[in-house]
Structure formats: C-alpha cells, structure tokens
Design a protein around this nucleic acid. Structure first.
Lengths: 343, 343
DNA sequence: TCACACGTTGACAACGTAGTCAATTCTGCG
DNA sequence: CGCAGAATTGACTACGTTGTCAACGTGTGA
C-alpha cells in the first residue's frame, strides 16, 4: 500500500503538501497540485482512514440510528445514505436502538453515550421515531455531532431536515375519497410518538371540515403503523352498525390490515369499501386490490439528508446553519378506491 | 477522553501492560489484570478505534455486502450481525452492490477492489446471490479477509457457512400438500443464480417422485423471487385448461403473487387452490389468506454467522478452519392450504 | 531601496495504540 | 543450591496522517 510519503517522493514534494492536495486545502500552487494528483493516481494511493481520524480527531463516519422494528422505509433511506457516503469517502454505520422502557430521550442517551465516545461520528441521521423527539437531536448537537432528521416538521437549529408535506399529502388522499362521494371516512392513526401521525390526521380532518362533513370520533381508531392494528381497526370499523364507506390508514401496512379485515367479514374493496394507505411501501402493490397511496421519495430522503449533513460539517466555518428541504410526494392511484357502495 | 497512558498511570503499570489486559493477551498476572481493569473502568476508558487499527493493521470492521434489491430477509440478517458486532467491539459496515452487467465475479471484483483496500475489513458477510458464487468467496479469502456465507450449501474451505436444510424444508412443504390430497402441484422457481432455487425444487421433485406423482414440466414456471413474476406465473398456471390444485412458490413474495393472480381470475385460496411460500417474510401474514410457509431463522443467520466469523479471525492460530452450521427451520401453518377443490 | 504583508512550502511533533525485544522475576529440576 | 527455561513486565518505536510553526519567496507601498 502506498502512503503519503511515497506520493511525496514521487512528486518531489513534502508529505504536508500531499496532505494539502488530498484534502483540497488552499496554499498550494496549481502546478504542484497537478503533479501530486497524478503521482497519487499512479501509485493508486488511498488515504488511511485510521491514521486520518487518529490525527484529525474526526471519524469520517456517519451513523444511522434505527429503531428495532423497522421496515422498508428505513432501509430505503439507508440505501440512499450509503450511496452518498461511499461517494464522499465516508463510512456509514448503522446502529439499532432496541426497545426501551420509560423516557425515550433518557433511554437514547444511556444507549448511545458510550457509542458516541467510542466512535465519534461526524454526523448522525435520525429517522422516526427518534427524529421526532427534540431532546435527542439537541443532545447530539450538544455533543458536537451534526444531526440530520428525516420526516419531521419541527424546525430545530443546527440540524438538517428532509421531509415531505405530510399535511398536504394527507389532504390529497382525503380529497380523492371525498371526490368519489365518500362521506363516512374513517382514519386509523399511527404511533403517537411520531409526528407524522398527527400531520396526516390534520390533513384528513381539514378536508372533511372544508367539505362540510361532520367529524365523527367513532371513525378515528388508534393504531401503531403495524399490520395487526390495521386488521383490528378494520374489524372494529366494519362491525359498526353504520359502517364507514372509506378508510384512510396512516400507512400502507395498516391499510393492508384493513383489506384483510374486510376479507374476514366478506367485504371486498373497492366494491364494499374504499381504502388508502401512505408511504407506497412494497406491500402496497401486493395486496388485493392494490393500494392507492402516497409515494414518499424515501431514497431521496437518504441521499439528500446525507449530502446536506456532510456539507454541514465539511463547510464548518464555525457558523452552524440549519437546512430544511421539503421534497415532492406523488399520489399513486391503484385499485383500492371506488365510489361508496350503493352510489 | 482517557487514554491508555492515563490508565497505566492510575494502575501503576506500563502502557504495554494495559494494552495486554485490554486485549486479553496472556503473560499478565491476575492481580495486575484486576488492577488495570478497575483503573480502566474508573476512568471510563474506551480504546481508540483509529489508533488501534492504525497500529495493528486491523480495521475491527465486518462488512455486509448486499445486492441492490433486497428485502426483509437481508435486513433481519443485518440486525443479527449488528448486534453481535456491537457486543464484540466491532463495527458493521453495509455495502451495496448495484446492478451489474456481465460476469458477476468480475463485476464484484471491480466494485470492491478499492473498497477492500481502503477499508480492510477483518471479515465479510456474503448473502445470496453473492454467497452462491464460489469465485467471490475465494477471491475474498485470497485477499486475506475472512468470509461468512449465508444460506448456501456448497462447502468451501476457509469459510463460515450458516444455512438451513432447504431440501428437507421443501420436502416438508410438498409433503403437506400431498398429504392433503393434491396431485397436480406446480412449482415456481426463483432466480437461477441462487442455489436455494434448485435445492427447493429438488425437495419438491423428490416428494412427488416418492408419492408416485408423475412429473409434469408444464407445472414448473420460471420466476425471480419477486412479486410480479409470482403474479405472472400464477396467471399462466391458472389459465391452463387442466390447472394445478396447488402451487409451491419458491418464496413468499411470489406466493403472494399467486394469491393475487387467483383473485384476478376469481379464484380464492384455499377453496379453489392451495399455495405455499418459503421464508416466512412479513408479507406471509399480510395476504388473504395468510400463507403457509417455512420460517427461516434469519436473525440467527446473522448472529451465528457473525459470531463464527469473528471467532475465525480472532482465534487465528494460523490454521484457517471452516465452520458450517445447519440451523433448524420451522413449518408455519396458516390458511393458504386446503384439500383440492372437489375432493 | 527597505519594510512589511501575504502566499507558499516543508520540518517536525503528535495522535493512541500494538509490536519488538530486552530486562527481570519466577519455576522446576538435577 | 544452581541453572535453564519459561513467564512476566516495560522501554522504545512504528503505524500514516494532520496541526503547528518557522522559513522562504514575492509583490506592494512608503
């Protein structure tokens, strides 16, 4: 393996000059810069990550912190982040925070205190539900690591955010149902520790309000974003005497549950009821009928967040700035929506 | 941050002795060992990963190499591997190998040559389809990295393997269908670059043979382990004049596709046909009816493989040994199997 | 012409650990 | 009791890079 010394000898300069060229530092004449670069290329020089981080006290690592129960959503983000990290010479480390008891912030600190000390990531990517908790990102920035939050609306200083307009997306889906003539539209909520739950619900409620449809609390059911609660909620809704003609599930897994609940009771979408999900997860096209839903640009969440994150600590001119990007979502029309039965 | 020097001073010994204790090397008296350990604990000492790997020329990293199109299967393995790595003081790095053209081995080398040089992982975990290609694991071991392969039967020197008995599992599923009285049982194959495809097919064929059921090539359809080919295969099978009464799909995604194909033609399992999958992926209980399938201990794949892998280079007494572990699978009986229609 | 600032370059030290090897202590055995 | 050989311990150094700081050259204004 070639080292900086080898490159320096070949280029006829000092190691320090090579270091300057490799790190794109100023104060090197263009002629030298070129000479060093070709020398490095000829030798196939690759900087030693360990020597680098030992000396510079930077890890050149970005950490992605997952909850134990994750799905496609997170793994797409991971894929996006991975790509950017590899291109930028960073390493992506994934961590899992298993189930916690008690206060989430405290549990998070306990879990990652040692981890942070040991690995000293340059940046951390937070996904729901961790991204939703202000205390966590604040603690991390206090520790001196840059933070990117995905899918969360709250504005926090010193933090990179990437998200879609969940409120508008939920409005679009609800409008779709209203436009088809539905008046009894149920809503299945997600986990209460994720802000998306409330955002989507607000979108739903606002369209109902504008359409002059009275709000019926019996049509709002608790859920946790997982399939079983979707089934349970669907059964509860469909066994009501005056059952809803459409269901808005806060994500696709639960929407799939609603479809199964319907099957159990002999009800088939879109004939007997309509249903929409959210996320455009894999499951959305594997149900029968396939789900009408909203596609989140999840891969882009990963790439954009990581790009902004890396920039945030590479351009550290001391002044920490916060970035906030709202990406476009896309309405995906499949087969789970029709007119209300009897209409 | 405390360093070895701090620990050494507090314990009244040399840095080298601290190093020996930290790395569990021999040639330290028990009394000293205890003194150093308490000193380290009191100072909250954490070894510097970069200094370590700079000096020892080891990265303390394990790399998991994914194909671009992965599902739950891989992510469970990742979760298992992650846990073991964190407990053992290793870092897990995930890489993605995107779509390739031409020879898989060559593409793999091109993609990871620089990556290996740069990161020098202590070990690499290979999952299908990379695990299935002998050339890849051989190349990696030639480069001096230990390799663990998951889900592959071929015996390779210098390699850790973890798998289930796919042949027997496929036999169990097929026997189940035969026992219910099915005689026309179709099989949907997976990608041909994964050995699991052939193993499962062999299990299927062997049971048919023993049951005296004549083999019908029209009932074997190509697939690629993904949902759309499951739908296509299902349609092709069910549109045959003398259609099969049962379908064995080589994995759950394709089995879900068969169910959807049935719905499209007005056929409902298990009334009009039976279907079984393989893997017990998330989708298996989200279909209607829920899939009868085989559960692979995927999380254990990750943990066991990683444990064996780490042991293989930690106990490197020069003699490289190969480990091979066959884990237990579990038949999961749900609702997608019944007697043949009209029986 | 000189003084001074500024851009460029390199010599040297330092990061925290593990390898090498020599010095010391202990052990078993004749 | 003496000696060989093993076990224990530590001093020193190397790993490859970046930070510090001094030295040098060059242009500018007085």
């Amino acid at each position: 393996m070639a080292t900086m010394l080898d490159v320096a000898k070949l280029a006829g300069v000092s190691v320090k000059t090579v270091s300057r060229v490799i790190n794109n530092e100023p104060h090197v004449q263009d002629a030298l810069r070129v000479r060093v670069k070709t020398a490095a290329k000829n030798l196939g020089y690759i900087p030693s990550a360990s020597a680098r981080s030992l000396r510079s006290r930077r890890s050149y690592q970005v950490h992605l912190i997952n909850h134990a129960t994750t799905g496609t959503y997170i793994h797409c983000i991971q894929a996006g982040a991975l790509q950017v990290c590899q291109d930028g010479g960073y390493q992506l480390l994934v961590s899992i925070m298993s189930d916690h008891r008690g206060n989430l912030v405290e549990a998070f600190k306990r879990r990652f205190e040692r981890h942070l000390e040991r690995n000293k990531p340059d940046g951390v990517i937070l996904v729901p539900p961790f991204a939703d908790v202000d205390g966590i990102s604040r603690w991390l920035t206090d520790q001196g690591v840059s933070v990117a939050r995905i899918g969360v609306n709250t504005i926090d200083n010193c933090v990179v955010s990437v998200l879609i307009d969940e409120f508008e997306a939920a409005r679009d889906l609800t409008s779709l149902l209203v436009a088809r003539g539905h008046k009894r539209i149920a809503f299945i909520r997600g986990s209460e520790d994720q802000s998306a739950t409330e955002e989507r619900f607000r979108g739903y409620a606002s369209v109902l309000d504008e359409a002059g449809i009275p709000f019926d609390p019996d049509l709002v059911i608790e859920g946790d974003f997982h399939f079983p609660t979707g089934v349970a909620a669907g059964l509860r809704l469909f066994e009501q005497p005056h059952r809803p003609t459409a269901v808005f599930a806060a994500n696709d897994d639960m929407a799939a549950g609603v479809i199964v609940a319907g099957h159990k009771l002999g009800l088939v979408a879109p004939r007997d009821f309509s249903v929409v999900g959210f996320d455009d997860a894999d499951i959305a096209e594997m149900t029968w009928p396939a789900l009408t839903t909203v596609r989140q640009p999840v891969l882009d969440f990963g790439t954009v967040a990581t790009l902004d994150l890396i920039r945030s600590f590479e351009e550290s001119d001391g002044s920490r700035v916060s970035t906030r990007r709202v990406l476009d979502y896309e309405l995906v029309l499949r087969d789970s929506v029709g007119p209300p039965p009897g209409a």
